[in-house]
Deep mutational scan, measured.
Amino acid sequence: MIIKINGKYYKIKKIEKNPNGKYTITTENGKKYEFKNVKIFSEEELK
């Protein structure tokens, strides 16, 4: 799965839903981001 952050695309390693309704997304390079609204892309959609 792929996520778009600030115009760049990252591969997703893990998605966790937090009790506060936000999502914590861990990218393949180990960085964590927290979002309220998340749009996930499949690799097929990006081709």
Rank of each mutant, 00 (worst) to 15 (best):
T26Q: 05
N20I: 03
N20A: 07
E43F: 02
K39L: 15
I15D: 00
K47Q: 15
G7D: 09
K36V: 13
E34W: 09
K13Y: 14
E28K: 08
T27Y: 03
E16K: 04
V38E: 04
K13Q: 14
E44N: 04
V38L: 10
G21T: 00
N18Q: 12
K22G: 11
I3N: 00
N20L: 05
T24D: 05
I40H: 06
E44P: 02
P19N: 10
E44T: 04
E43D: 07
Y33N: 01
Y23W: 14
Y10M: 12
F35V: 15
Y9F: 11
K39Y: 15
P19F: 08
N6R: 13
E45G: 06
E45M: 03
M1H: 08
L46V: 08
P19V: 12
G21I: 00
K8L: 10
G7V: 01
N18D: 09
I40W: 15
T27W: 04
E34Q: 11
E34M: 10
K47I: 15
K17T: 06
K14S: 14
K8C: 10
I2C: 12
N29E: 12
E34I: 14
T26P: 00
K4I: 14
G30F: 01
E43K: 03
G7E: 04
N37R: 08
E28Q: 14
K14M: 13
K36N: 11
K13V: 12
N6I: 04
I2Y: 15
K47Y: 04
E44A: 05
P19T: 13
Y9N: 05
E44K: 02
K11T: 08
N29T: 12
T24G: 02
Y33F: 13
E16Q: 08
V38C: 15
E44R: 01
N6L: 09
K14D: 10
E43N: 03
K11F: 08
K13E: 08
E16M: 07
I2Q: 08
L46Q: 06
K17R: 13
I40P: 07
I15R: 00
K36T: 15
I5F: 06
P19S: 14
I5Y: 08
N20G: 07
K47T: 14
F35D: 02
I5D: 01
N6H: 12
I3Q: 01
T26C: 03
K11A: 09
F35E: 03
K4S: 08
K11G: 05
N6M: 09
I25T: 00
E34K: 08
S42W: 14
T27H: 03
K22H: 14
M1P: 08
I3E: 00
V38A: 05
K32H: 07
K13I: 14
E34C: 09
I15T: 01
T26A: 01
I2G: 04
F41D: 07
F41K: 03
Y9T: 05
E34V: 13
Y9S: 07
I25C: 03
T26H: 09
K14Q: 14
Y9W: 15
N37K: 08
I40A: 05
K39N: 11
I15A: 04
T27Q: 01
I40C: 06
T24C: 07
Y23F: 12
E43Q: 05
G30I: 00
S42R: 04
G21W: 01
K31M: 13
K36E: 14
K14E: 11
N18R: 09
E28H: 12
N37C: 15
L46C: 15
K17M: 13
F35T: 07
K8E: 08
F41L: 10
Y33W: 13
G21Q: 03
E28L: 13
K14T: 14
K36W: 13
N20P: 04
N20S: 09
Y33V: 06
I3W: 03
K8V: 13
G30M: 02
K4T: 06
Y10A: 06
I25G: 00
K17I: 14
G7P: 00
K31F: 09
K17N: 05
T26S: 03
K47D: 13
I2D: 02
G30L: 02
M1I: 09
Y9A: 06
K31Q: 13
N37I: 11
E44S: 06
T24R: 05
Y9C: 13
I2K: 05
F41R: 03
N20K: 07
K47P: 11
G7S: 04
I5V: 13
N6E: 13
E16S: 10
K22C: 12
N20T: 09
G7R: 04
M1S: 09
E16L: 07
T24W: 09
T24K: 05
Y9R: 04
M1A: 10
K22M: 14
K22A: 11
M1T: 08
E16N: 05
K36G: 06
V38I: 14
K4F: 09
T27M: 15
T26Y: 10
T27D: 06
T26V: 11
K4M: 13
I40R: 02
T24M: 09
G7H: 06
L46R: 03
I40G: 06
E16C: 08
N20C: 06
G7K: 07
Y23V: 04
Y23K: 01
I15K: 01
K36F: 12
K17Q: 10
E44H: 04
I25M: 02
K39C: 15
N18V: 04
K32S: 10
F41W: 13
T26W: 14
K47M: 14
I5P: 00
K39M: 13
N37W: 15
M1G: 10
P19E: 10
E34S: 13
K31N: 11
N6S: 10
V38Q: 05
T24L: 14
G7C: 05
N20H: 06
V38S: 03
I2S: 12
I25Q: 00
N18I: 06
K11Y: 11
K32Y: 08
G21M: 02
K31V: 12
F41M: 10
M1N: 09
I12L: 04
F35P: 02
G7T: 04
I5E: 01
E45L: 03
K8G: 05
E34F: 12
N29S: 14
K14P: 00
I3Y: 03
N6F: 12
K13R: 12
P19Y: 07
T24S: 12
T24N: 07
G21P: 00
T27E: 01
Y33T: 02
K22Y: 14
K14I: 12
N6A: 13
Y10I: 12
I5K: 02
K32D: 04
I25L: 05
L46I: 13
I3M: 07
I40M: 07
F35N: 02
I40V: 07
E16I: 10
I2E: 04
K39T: 15
T24Y: 09
V38F: 05
N20M: 06
K13H: 13
K8Q: 12
F41P: 11
T27C: 14
N29L: 07
F41E: 09
